[in-house]
Design a protein around this nucleic acid. Sequence first.
RNA 1: GGAGAGAUGGCAGAGUGGUCGAAUGCACCGGUCUUGAAAACCGGCAAGGAUGCAAGUCCUUCCAGGGUUCGAAUCCCUGUCUCUCCGCCA
Length: 424
Amino acid sequence: MHDIKFIKDNSSLFDAILKKRNISSHSKEILFLHQEYLDNLKKTQGLQEKKNSLSKMFSPKLNQKEIEKIKSDVTKIKKELDELKNKTDEKKNKLNQILLEIPNLVDDKVPIGKSEIDNIIIKEVGKINKPDFKIKNHVEILEKNNLLDYNKASKLSGSRFSVLRSSLATLHRALVNFMIDINVTEFQYEECIVPELVKSDCLTGTGQLPKFDEDLFRTNFNDLWLIPTAEVPLTNFHREEIIDSTKLPLRYTSFTNCFRSEAGAAGKDTKGLMREHQFGKVELVSIAEPNKSMAEMERMIECVEMILKKLNIPYRLVELCSGDLGFSSAYTIDLEVWMPGQKKFREVSSCSNCKDFQSRRMKMRAKNHGTGEIYYPHTLNGSSIAIGRILISIIENYQQENGTISIPDILKNYMKGITSIGSK
RNA sequence: GGAGAGAUGGCAGAGUGGUCGAAUGCACCGGUCUUGAAAACCGGCAAGGAUGCAAGUCCUUCCAGGGUUCGAAUCCCUGUCUCUCCGCCA
């Protein structure tokens, strides 16, 4: 959500920054609407003042005539106020509706570009293995070993769902535990278990609503929606709160299932664990002082990198260009891992600094009790890591010529002594 | 699912029709005292918005949405959430 005062004082800058996302100018329309709203608001407040003062004049000692006069005057004002209030609300709602659908302003650091083609590879880490046997993709390997069962999955739920069995399920669980452990003990994130159904207000807060409802699953129970990422509940922890600034930064981590309709992805990544309606993910969320959020972001990326290093999987850092940046983000770095089956790097994590965009939307503020200052803290989120996709990478990178998959050293303690899965 | 109680400032907690944006305590901030600190004492301390150079003035908000009333934190209705008891249940 954008600060109307900022738009007023910097309208051409505002439009220029939006243009980086290939979005046309908005400020003129917004400011016009805002002025209309203000005009109505002033009138409304004037009438309210009148009404209040009339009520204050009321006293049982007044004579009948005076009392009747006040009553009828107030009734008249109330009627007028009703209309005016409706009009004011209408303007305000219209303005809000527009503001809620405008994406975050991109940071100066973000490279300008149209699509993912213009993203910038910052660095590549780890050596890509080129074994001298024929590499299989994860679906081939896992289905052959009865570890991934699409007959069962489609019977239960249709396409874009998976059933993971026996040692593959164990490996999934091992990854979750490994990642949460390291986030808690090495990186000082607070471990949380959170609802996977949330109210629409939460989704508006983080930016999925109102614009992207098609990507989400909604239930027919109250106003509850399945979360597309744990970013939603974790970031909304402090919605409509004023946080004591000495408590910042706040760091939370959680494993949840994530649910996405994949509405616009027909035909994309149709096989395997790559793109599913339900997938597991460990998420990191930080709430930071505005002047420290970029440093916090670097720290967050290092946390995710550490996991990939410990898993010993080749990866690269990609700086998203303005045209590929997510709605709520001001600056995003993706982490992509090598997937031998596709001979491509694919995204397993996306770390974003949303600055004050989400905190404004959810009215999350911080207060410095020394100075009395109240301000919007910055929010950051990053995956650490999407389990389904990192599984693909592990399976494909650790596959052996004999069709088995060896277990990364770091996970062996989490695997009940299993050092290899699949049969020869 | 049945019966009952409740939701007030950062927290605790008073307030049942006007003088209430709201007592009091704690926390927090400033000061006095002290070599320093603590204690004690004095003062300050909700948020959002409009207007104004500013001081200030005004509007809104006591879970949310409706209603009654000249006037609502307070009365009525609906919803949400919390707690207690009973039933059921992983």
